[in-house]
Simulated assay, not measured.
Amino acid sequence: MINKIISKYKATLDNFKGGELKCHCLTKPVIVEIKGQSAHNHACGCSKCWKPDGALFSQVAVISKDNLKVTNNESKLTVIDDSATIKRFACKRCGVHMYGRIDNTEHPFFGLDFIHTELSTQKSWSAPTFAAFVSSIIETGTKPEDMDAIRQQLTSQGLAPYDCLSPVLMDVIATHIASH
C-alpha cells in the first residue's frame, strides 16, 4: 500500500513549470492549476488528510498560495472543517481534497497551500523526502504491531519516518514562534 503512493513520483525537475490537479469526478471535475515546482513533498499519515482508496499515506507538498488557481468547477469545493488550522478544500461530489490553506496570518506556514501531487498526471513534481505523522495511521485502522514493518519500508524507500513534520519544517515553526 505504501508503494501505491510513494513510487508514483520519483523524478524531480528543478525547472518544472507546474501542472494540474483533478478531483475524481468523471464529469465536470474540479481542476486546480499549480504554477511552479512544489516543495517539502512527503508521505502523510495524518487522519485529516485525504488518501487514495486503499492507501495508508497521502502525498502532500506545499506551494505558494499565489501559485494556485482553481480553474474549473470551483463551486463544487467546500471546506471540510472550518475550525481546523488547515482549511481543506474538497470536492462536494467525490470527496477528494484539492488543497489546504491556512488563513491565520500568524501561523508559520501562512501563505503556503498544501497540495496532493498524486492528483496530477504530470510526473515531475518534487519527490517525497520524508514521512510525517506515521503513527497516525493507527487512528485509521492500522494495527500497532504492523508499525515496525511500515517504518522499515518507508526507510528503505528513502523516507525518514517522523511522528511530526521533518526537522527542517519543525525548525521553521520554532524559529517563527521564537521571533514573535
Rank of each mutant, 00 (worst) to 15 (best):
102 I>N: 02
58 S>E: 03
3 N>K: 12
85 T>Q: 08
126 S>Q: 14
118 E>R: 11
34 I>V: 15
72 N>H: 13
91 C>M: 00
124 S>R: 04
89 F>L: 11
101 R>N: 15
21 L>G: 07
172 V>N: 05
110 F>T: 03
166 S>A: 10
130 F>R: 00
63 I>V: 15
135 S>T: 13
4 K>I: 11
61 A>H: 01
129 T>F: 04
162 Y>G: 06
80 I>K: 14
7 S>R: 02
79 V>T: 07
155 T>W: 11
39 A>Q: 14
124 S>D: 10
121 T>C: 01
106 E>T: 15
75 S>D: 13
61 A>G: 11
97 H>S: 14
98 M>G: 00
90 A>M: 11
165 L>F: 15
99 Y>K: 00
122 Q>W: 01
68 L>S: 04
13 L>N: 14
68 L>Q: 06
165 L>V: 12
160 A>H: 12
32 V>M: 04
134 V>M: 03
133 F>R: 05
108 P>V: 11
52 P>G: 00
126 S>I: 08
157 Q>E: 10
178 A>F: 06
32 V>A: 04
170 M>C: 12
180 H>C: 14
174 A>W: 11
128 P>M: 06
51 K>M: 07
8 K>M: 07
31 I>C: 08
44 C>T: 02
114 F>Q: 03
87 K>I: 03
125 W>F: 09
103 D>L: 10
103 D>K: 05
11 A>L: 13
151 R>K: 15
66 D>W: 12
148 D>G: 04
31 I>G: 03
106 E>F: 11
116 H>M: 01
53 D>S: 12
119 L>Y: 00
136 S>Y: 08
145 E>C: 09
